[in-house]
Computed example of a mutant assay.
Amino acid sequence: MESNYSQYIRNIELDRDSVPSFSEYPFNLPAVKNLDKLTFHPKVTFIIGENGSGKSTILESIAVAYGFNAEGGTKNFNFSSRATHSDLSSYIKVVKGTKRPQTGFFLRAESFYNFASNIDDLDADLPEEMRLIKSYGGRSLHEQSHGESFFAVFQNRFSGKGIYILDEPEAALSPSRQMSMLTRMHELVREDCQFIIATHSPIIMAYPHAWIYEIREGFDQVKYEDTEHYQAMSSFLNNKQKMLNILLE
């Protein structure tokens, strides 16, 4: 399946000639050092890989190059609690399609607390009828559990004709909530949305017909059943006692 010219993000390209050194961070990461061009599914693309492979770094660079705040939120958010993001986005070209999204969101698990705090800070100076939290369900994200606040964003802030870049959304979600996330994703895909997601969750990456890129030496497109995540989880659940004997001997 080729990318669709009308999708919001068709692909990214790394300006390899401008990279100062592929032996320095972040260019020495497996996700970056062999990157030339990465094409996305018009609906759902997953990026998976081991910790340290660079999947969050590459996702952040896509989001920032597209215009999102490095710590998450919509394009209207510009808060920064710590300037820890890499400069990879300066070397990434985002190739857009012919359609423009009406909305979008960059959700990253590691800075979600800062995002929720920024909403509370901004709302403190606004009259009730104008408060941002109304778009997130009306209740402070800090007054909910981590999982509840994550899901409040999916349920209330995400809407049709949007581009959504999600970094490890399963971090705060129980297995049943991850299944609910699949349902919500499917509703939004039917409403002309595009998702690019970095995840470790075999549940979330089971979304049908999605493209899955597994970071090894570079980006390898793989089938769901061939992912290390699926195989490890399947082996454990189908052979629990045997696996425990091996792991705990």
Rank of each mutant, 00 (worst) to 15 (best):
A116W: 08
N78I: 10
I92S: 07
A116Y: 04
H85Q: 05
T74C: 12
P20T: 08
M1W: 04
S6I: 06
G104V: 08
V64W: 03
A206S: 15
M179R: 13
G218W: 02
L173H: 02
G97F: 07
R100S: 14
Q221R: 15
I197G: 03
K240V: 15
G218K: 09
P101G: 08
E148P: 04
S80M: 12
N4G: 01
K93C: 01
R100A: 14
L237D: 05
S80V: 11
A109T: 13
L38V: 08
K134A: 10
Y224G: 04
R184S: 04
I197R: 05
I163Y: 00
K96T: 15
S201L: 06
G73T: 11
C193Q: 04
A116E: 11
A124Q: 09
D167W: 00
H229F: 14
F158W: 01
D17F: 12
L38F: 08
H41Q: 09
L35G: 08
H209Y: 09
D192V: 01
T103H: 14
P127G: 05
Q231V: 14
K223V: 03
I203W: 04
F22D: 06
P175L: 06
F68R: 05
E217G: 07
G162K: 01
E110K: 12
K240P: 04
H229I: 11
A65E: 08
K55L: 09
R100E: 14
P26D: 08
M243G: 05
E249K: 15
K99I: 04
K99Q: 06
I246A: 13
Y113H: 12
N69H: 12
R108C: 12
N11P: 00
T98A: 05
A109S: 15
Y164C: 01
S201M: 04
A65T: 13
L166Y: 03
T227E: 04
E148W: 00
M179L: 12
M205Y: 07
S21R: 13
S6Q: 03
P26H: 10
P101S: 06
I58G: 06
H85P: 00
R10S: 07
E128N: 07
